[in-house]
Design a protein around this nucleic acid. Structure first.
Lengths: 242, 242
DNA sequence: CGCCCTATTGATCACGGTCAAGAGTCGTGG
DNA sequence: CCACGACTCTTGACCGTGATCAATAGGGCG
């Protein structure tokens, strides 16, 4: 679906376009036009096919990555060669802030799981902003706080919800923000089921069974990767009977 | 300020002492003497007995709390009136940064679980520092990043480790940083077992059984709340046989 | 000393993992 | 266009970790 012959891997786009793309990220929205120009000058925009590894845990952090399109999986490798998915980052998300800011190696592995379009900003230029630009530091602080809240929510979910509830929560979280409440909302699973299962701390098999259960219970309707939510209220309140 | 007698809940200490205590926290260590003085002027130092609730989830955030002594439990309330412990904060830790910085209500409930000594800094004064003091913002950024790393580690542990491994990991994490490797290290469980169990996402019963197992396996020796680690290497590598 | 709170121990059960086999699904090439 | 192979997804049978319920044993403290 992508692979439209676009610019070569690291071709720069027109500078103004790059600036606008950068400004679209909340993290950078506070920057002045000049700062954006400076960043744009050092930015590299490239497309990354599904399967590409952006970095592995242990790698040193080369800079900040902004996701324009596609999906990136953040995971840890377990003892037995398996991996657990910690987060899925989509368009609008970014990678590498924390290792960059702490000057530490990456703790997670990032792999593209849906053909992506990514902007890379070198570490140097970001660290300069940190050193010089209060607005940027405040923006980064806010960004990391939001991420911490998110991560804490994941931990809570993992601890207090059972599989069915985690799946229901995930499906609801995939709903676009403000949709018509009347129409039957539908979500599209962003990547293959085994990845979503791991992200929800489930096996592929169990995830499949839960989807089936929800279907039997009349809560969802599955058609391929498309899922229609038939009863959002019931799903939100109590996806299981007891 | 100070010397104003002994007020009950909020006896102030001598101002210089307060400044020094504040400077002891990494978050505030970057502040100038003047800024510290300003903070100290608005700071309230009080002792909180075991059982006291500092705030509940949903409460608006009144400011930053610094823990000098004791232990505070951060938890979420579940549907059935139970609670899950998300973190245990000890001396040197702080509470409330994130809700304060985001201007949101608390998402967690904080309860003192070991008689504590706490400094409270009003929201206003911290937000002023955020607005004015680059060093403070950078320091806060670093602080939140570290917390995010910590939280991510907890999530990983919860996902990839089984109960025995989580207990072993916890015991090892309680070891003081750089101790003599020769001497048999010992840790003291900071609070009652049911709280630690919840923090490790285990039931009290299961936690008790795991402790017993580790004892039988010759890995630890339990005497009341004191636990001696008899074989750190084996515990670190593989607390279970397989 | 007796009471209350905490920690243990036992028995049973369910959620979810593992292993194994079958059913789609899709891309590639003959 | 169909056939093949490689994945991904589903379904089934079984098992283990850890939760639940219940009863007992410690342990501090008024």
């Amino acid at each position: 679906m992508d692979a439209q012959g676009m610019e070569s891997p690291s071709a720069s786009v027109a500078a103004p376009a790059m600036e606008d793309m950068l400004a679209g990220f909340a993290l950078l929205a506070v920057l002045t036009r000049e700062d954006l120009q400076r960043l744009a000058r050092g930015a590299v925009h490239h497309s990354a096919p599904c399967g590409q590894i952006l970095f592995r845990q242990g790698d040193s952090c080369s800079g900040l990555r902004l996701i324009l399109k596609g999906r990136v999986k953040l995971s840890v490798d377990t003892v037995r060669g398996e991996e657990k998915v910690i987060a899925l980052i989509g368009a609008g998300g970014s990678l590498g802030e924390v290792p960059l800011l702490l000057g530490q190696p990456h703790r997670l592995t990032a792999e593209v799981v849906a053909d992506a379009s990514i902007i890379e900003l070198g570490a140097q230029i970001i660290l300069e902003q940190i050193a010089q630009n209060v607005h940027f530091v405040r923006s980064a602080l806010r960004d990391v706080c939001l991420r911490l809240v998110e991560r804490t929510r994941d931990l809570e979910n993992c601890m207090v919800l059972n599989g069915r509830q985690r799946v229901a929560d995930f499906l609801l979280s995939q709903l676009p923000a403000g949709v018509a409440p009347a129409a039957l909302p539908a979500v599209t699973l962003p990547v293959k089921n085994s990845i979503i299962a791991s992200r929800l701390n489930l096996t592929q098999e169990h995830f499949s069974r839960i989807l089936h259960e929800l279907q039997v219970a009349g809560l969802i309707e599955v058609r391929g990767r498309q899922i229609r939510l038939l009863d959002v209220a019931r799903m939100r309140y109590s996806p299981h009977e007891d």
